[in-house]
Computed example of a mutant assay.
Amino acid sequence: MINKLPDSTPLSRVLDAVAWLCLAVSGVCMVVLVSSFGWLVYGRYVLNDTPTWVEQVALLMVVTITFLGAAVGVYQRTHLNVDLFSALLPPRGKIMLSVSIDLLMGLFGGLMAWQAYGLVMFAWNKSIPLLGVPDGLRYIPMVISGALILVFSLSRIPAALRGQHQSLAVTEETS
């Protein structure tokens, strides 16, 4: 279930599309990951010639899946949280808590993007062994994820300030 912004605004539709794109890219990376390991097993046991590039491709795919998935988890509010404290607060306190959490998550995302960009620049002139591509590619999903966490988190603040905040926990939809 997707826990979207309360209003269907142009911004929320764009963010929905970005989240969908992240999930689609993660899905493609998962297919590449599974296929490359299939090729590894086939090469090792049938061809008796182990493809050595599979480990490096797998690392790139896992990093991409993990970080894009984390950003979508922030957008959909499927990340781990404890709702007990917010349930005890009055409505104004819930708004303040929701805004504070979104600000902290945005700060975290911005710092992650900034520091990961430094890693990209630091490692760009090195090469990933056996693949021949820049080592900085490993950190690009971190930059993208951090930037998306920043945008996804900050996009919730106006709705929260209008009193349209959603529960910090994901709620079940009734059929």
Rank of each mutant, 00 (worst) to 15 (best):
Y42H: 15
R138T: 05
L161K: 04
P141V: 01
G110C: 13
L148W: 07
M112W: 04
V63T: 13
V34K: 08
T9N: 04
D102P: 01
L59C: 10
A123Q: 09
V82I: 14
P141F: 01
Y75K: 13
W114T: 10
L11Q: 11
L59N: 12
Y139V: 01
L130G: 00
L154W: 10
V18W: 00
K4L: 04
M96R: 15
I128Y: 01
K94Y: 07
P91D: 11
I157K: 01
T64Y: 03
T9C: 02
A116S: 15
C22R: 03
V151Q: 00
R156S: 05
V14A: 08
N3Y: 06
L23H: 08
I101K: 05
L131T: 10
L107T: 13
H79G: 14
S127W: 01
G118C: 05
V62Y: 03
G43D: 10
P51V: 11
V72M: 03
S145D: 03
V18A: 07
Y139M: 01
L59F: 09
L59R: 15
L137I: 07
W114M: 06
Y42E: 08
L15P: 10
H79M: 10
G163F: 04
Y75N: 11
I101E: 06
G38H: 07
V31R: 03
R156Q: 06
V25P: 03
K4H: 11
A123I: 00
P6S: 13
N81G: 09
D7I: 06
S12T: 13
L88T: 15
L80E: 09
G132T: 12
M1E: 11
L47Y: 02
P129L: 10
Y75E: 09
P10G: 12
V143I: 02
L5N: 10
G136W: 00
V14Y: 02
F85Q: 14
L137H: 01
Y117L: 14
V170I: 13
Q76H: 14
M142A: 14
V72E: 08
V57T: 09
V74I: 13
L148P: 08
L104H: 10
G118R: 04
L15V: 12
D83I: 13
I95R: 12
A87S: 14
Y117K: 09
L15H: 09
L23E: 12
F37Q: 10
L130R: 11
V46P: 01
A116M: 12
V41S: 11
L84P: 01
P51D: 12
H165E: 08
R162W: 04
Y139T: 02
V41P: 03
L130Q: 11
S98I: 10
M96H: 13
V63H: 03
F37D: 03
A24T: 15
N81C: 07
E55H: 08
G27H: 12
V41C: 04
R92N: 15
L150E: 05
V34R: 07
N125F: 03
Q166T: 14
W114H: 14
S98H: 15
K126I: 02
M105L: 14
I101W: 00
I140N: 02
N3I: 06
R44K: 11
R77I: 05
L168V: 12
I65A: 03
S155Q: 08
D7R: 13
G118L: 02
L131A: 08
A147I: 04
A19F: 01
M30L: 15
V57I: 13
S35E: 06
T174N: 15
H165L: 01
S86H: 07
Y45S: 11
N3P: 00
V32W: 00
Y117P: 02
S145I: 01
